[in-house]
Design a protein around this nucleic acid. Structure first.
Lengths: 194, 194
DNA sequence: AAATTCGATTGATCCAGATCAATTATTTAT
DNA sequence: ATAAATAATTGATCTGGATCAATCGAATTT
């Protein structure tokens, strides 16, 4: 259960058996059925969650009722409304399961204790956030500089795996496009294909 | 010189006198005249820089020759092309001084040594990156959901200080707008004013 | 202080992608 | 299996903001 978590932690930092044991005690396991919510927009996001199985999505609903997907989270990745989790504000995003899923969750108080008791976790999350920041920055620049078609080509190339698991309308939302636009531009990207 | 740096570090973590002394040895001071480059797009970004005076900008030039500003960095903030600095790739951004400025710089090897010798720096940067990530995420969602006018109103409200120091065409670039659009929408936001 | 460079404004036109609407798959639930 | 709900496609139209172009203003440079 925690094996996937340790595998990921140990890609970035070295852990002693004692630290591993301690880390285990901080996380609770949670099963989510498809469509079940982990966080609901407007509530406080109580958990930082590591996905061990399945696929979640985090999204915001704007004033006009349009949903904007912020993140897809498959196995081996973390998800949360960070602003809500770390600062206690109400959550801007809802997070729900796109498939039957399993997550390891930690509360913010426990997160604080974990980093104090196992300082190398600060290093792990420093590296994790550092990488996320690089990715997020790229996405932001891409949102300004790339055309709809370029954005689609790019994600197909970089995340072929994800494309297969995600309905097209939700992928459109993630890319900041309307479903119609994504449907149309596919013909240009794969002219010959069904 | 390093005082501003310590003031900022100590907002997030506690440092012993010994740690402070050690930290000091890792940073070199650098003066930049207005328009001078700290990094040039296409080269490796050698430094992570803490601005102690002045104002820098980080920007990318796309295929069509348009500049897209990624970040304005005034005193008390960090700047770098993180992907280049941490991974050694060539830099996607250029960074230059918008005013005569002073920065404290650290190389990536020294950054690695710093975090190993002063582990609490991992915590500091974990917290720093965590906050940056929250901000960057908001900007990304905003780029999809908000109109040009909303983006402008928002930044005027949140960064009134910055607005005064930044020419309008560069602010437009930061917001992903053309200078013409920003000029026009101002009339709607401040109808009475000159 | 004149000259040059750079930024801001205003007007006219254009276009990528959104929106509205209808039709046809494809899932999901019963 | 059948019905109901949801997703994808296609067509027609609209629009926010970009682009092109000219003028005006402000700041640097010599």
């Amino acid at each position: 259960m925690h094996d996937i978590l340790f595998k990921h932690l140990e890609e970035k930092v070295t852990l002693t058996p004692g630290e591993k044991e301690l880390i285990t005690t901080f996380f609770a396991s949670k099963k989510l059925k498809k469509k079940q919510f982990l966080v609901v927009e407007g509530h406080v996001c109580k958990y930082l969650s590591f996905v061990t199985k399945g696929l979640l999505k985090a999204y915001n609903t704007d004033e006009k009722g349009n949903e904007h997907i912020n993140q897809f989270t498959p196995e081996g990745w973390w998800t949360s409304d960070m602003n809500s989790f770390f600062r206690g504000d109400i959550s801007f995003y809802s997070i729900d399961a796109m498939e039957d899923s399993e997550v390891l969750v930690i509360t913010s108080e426990d997160f604080e204790n974990l980093t104090l008791q196992v300082p190398v976790m600060d290093r792990y999350f420093r590296l994790l956030f550092q990488n996320s920041l690089i990715t997020k920055e790229r996405r932001l620049i891409s949102s300004y500089t790339h055309t709809a078609e370029e954005k689609y080509k790019h994600i197909v190339e970089k995340n072929p795996d994800l494309i297969k698991r995600v309905p097209q309308n939700l992928l459109a939302s993630y890319l900041g496009l309307s479903p119609e636009t994504l449907s149309r531009l596919k013909k240009n990207v794969f002219p010959g294909h069904k």
